[in-house]
Amino acid sequence: MTDQPFLDATMAHLDVVWSIARRMSTDPAEAEDLVQETYARAWQGFADQGRGDVRSWLIAICLNTARSELRRTRRRPVTLVGGSELDGHKASEDVSGDGLASLERQAVSRALAALPEAQRRAIVLVDIGGLTAREAAEIEGSPRGTILARLHRGRRQLAVLAEREGLHRGS
């Protein structure tokens, strides 16, 4: 099997996987490692993937890989995402926009990190990853209604927390 069919099928989803990895990692360098590991694992399993939705499949691998890493290092994601975000971002190539935009992103990142894990994962899958609630439910192994309930509470809580971080409505 050559690698071109795999690259053709998966590279279009790199931005989505990266966005999710950023929310599951302490800094950009760790997120890059996570993405690399995700694609390496996906490459291993590509022959068995069939014709399913590639984006959902990659996202599931990314989340499982992040879980494995967390278990291995015995760290908690809530402390990971918020803690060194500022320093990590300074060294990243992906800083976009002006300083204000960067600060806003850090504020939203901290607010996301403060959400309960289940709500944060639902938001990461649906609002950042672009999955439907049904697709997220399949990845999480939960009923669609549960994902929707987590989404609703998580979104509302995120708005409240972001406002506490100084992000006012309309900003």
Binding site: L14, S19, V108, R155, L158
Partner: peptide, 21 residues
């Protein structure tokens, strides 16, 4: 509130660095 939260989360989508590609 939920729309506001969704918009904030959607704004966290990022382009992957070229070097990562």
């Amino acid at each position: 509130d939920a729309r506001r939260g969704r918009a904030l989360a959607e704004a966290m989508r990022e382009l992957a660095p070229a070097s990562l590609r």
